[in-house]
Write a protein that binds this DNA or RNA. Structure first.
Lengths: 136, 136
DNA sequence: CTAGAAGTTAAAGTCAGCTTTAAGTCATGC
DNA sequence: GCATGACTTAAAGCTGACTTTAACTTCTAG
């Protein structure tokens, strides 16, 4: 499979696939006359990578756990550690978003004369500090 | 108030405050010998800006609704429109995060031989497409 | 008066995850 | 045998919200 076909099948840009190879999340495949030729299972590899990035893993994290992953190695402790850490992050993100949602709703339904007042009415220092804990 | 004190009080970096001025979310204050002197209510202004960015508004959006905001103008329709739009985004973010959470938990508790299998077992094409709708 | 802290500017750097560009080489169909 | 499309590389560009740097000026305490 040439890079164009892999790109079409994974719905990625060919440049993205080259980028993955460059930063080491995808292993460089065989070349024929300088061009990349991918084995069929590269498709699954790329999907796994996209899947993981969609789950919020960074490419650096993905590289980390893929590097220890033999072809059909069992789901290892390294992955579990990463997944647990990510789960925590996701939970924090949910909590933050719920807080934002209620704040937004309050602001939308309030009858303050100005936004400034409105924000002050929420008790700026407390609320701001609450939010700051969630800063990314 | 000089920029250093404003920075200390808002817990921002002075460079951030200058940056806000440069991109036009903060109005340039009086100068004394070339140095910025802020009136007391600049503190509230900066808090409002931080508050808004914490809520997920971009600085461009904040500039937009601050520019139409006279000193004590009522909470206007422009702000309401922006807030409603942001509320939608937050809801989508929550839905996405909840989906990610359950996927992560499934992956953590599964007994598949390999991650590849595990992802395939989730029904890659469907699940991946589901996630793609949430891609940012 | 002077050291040093704090202020000033424009421009470049940072992070992630790519895309775009430029300048070429290879493969394929007619 | 050649036009065209697909491929190659390294390097630069993009977004957003800043920070850092360099080279300077101004303020303040002793």
């Amino acid at each position: 499979m040439k890079i164009g076909e892999l790109a079409r099948r994974t719905k990625l840009n060919a440049s993205a696939i080259r980028y993955y190879e460059k930063i080491g999340v995808l292993v460089a495949p065989q070349r024929v006359g300088g061009q990349r030729r991918y084995p069929t299972d590269s498709f699954d590899r790329v999907l796994l990578i996209r899947f993981a990035t969609d789950m919020g893993f960074t490419l650096a994290e993905i590289k980390l756990f893929l590097s220890g992953l033999r072809d059909n190695a069992p789901v290892g402790p390294r992955w579990k550690r990463l997944a647990n850490r990510k789960l925590l992050e996701v939970d924090q993100n949910i909590a933050r978003s719920l807080k934002l949602k209620s704040l937004l709703q309050n602001l939308l339904h309030c009858r303050c004369a100005s936004l400034q007042q409105c924000v002050r009415a929420l008790g700026p220092s407390e609320n701001l500090r609450l939010l700051q804990n969630f800063r990314r």
